[in-house]
Design a protein around this nucleic acid. Sequence first.
DNA 1: CAGAATGATACCCGCATGGTATCATTAACC
DNA 2: GGTTAATGATACCATGCGGGTATCATTCTG
Lengths: 131, 131
Amino acid sequence: MKLINRDVDYAARALTFMARANKPTVSVAQMQEQVGVSGPFLRKIMQKLHKAGIVHAVKGKGGGFAMARNPDKVTLKQLMEVLQGPLRLNDCVFGEKICQRHAACVLRHKIAGIESRLLAEVAAVTIKDLA
Amino acid sequence: MKLINRDVDYAARALTFMARANKPTVSVAQMQEQVGVSGPFLRKIMQKLHKAGIVHAVKGKGGGFAMARNPDKVTLKQLMEVLQGPLRLNDCVFGEKICQRHAACVLRHKIAGIESRLLAEVAAVTIKDLA
DNA sequence: CAGAATGATACCCGCATGGTATCATTAACC
DNA sequence: GGTTAATGATACCATGCGGGTATCATTCTG
């Protein structure tokens, strides 16, 4: 039951680094040591963040990445969605068979409630909070 | 980010079945159809519940399993601990390097808070609620 | 003793996660 | 314009784990 995976962890650290650095762009080479991860791996993460519109990317010499929004507009929930996929605790593993059993449905209902409250919590954590 | 895995799901359904059945013991053969899982697999789950003291086991002809406590004393949290291992959202993947970076520590702190509230929620769901 | 049940354990398999390698593309600077 | 420094895209690897099966041992009933 992992809440966040490594991608999210590294992304949070990288974004925090970027939020603190007062530069127009920050390259992967500048981040990798502080973030504690290999360059290629961090690049892959940054590319996903770029596709998701969370960071800008500037190619070429002197280029790098920059946050596309204010740090207080980037939430942990967004990072999880981008890097871990849709957030469904409540994934029904039984298909249509499920609703033949009332007990299981009660369980789904309980979990759905827990899920919604959990999502509200991760949505409340921003990069600004971490910086 | 799965909250519960299939083992927990099946266990919850099996225990719910047992709680409703007014019998001294219930065999795997009697449960497997209703729970919707193969006999051998359900047996493995029941054995773990037995080791954890959640159910009694009676070997031999006419034997089976019985709940070892009242249904309102068996929580979703207990099932998760037994069948999924320790509940740590907050697993630090960076070892001692972590605390060199303040940002990461803030993240841990946030997640720890979320975790404790989540655990309180799963501890509040009992088999009685599902039955 | 036979049959019905659990106990224990070993094994298998597919796939997601974590990580690397490679080539293409773009832009700055000399 | 060529070199270099950066990202973009993609393919690949490898290993652990979740989910599931099979087999034999043990225990109890009748």
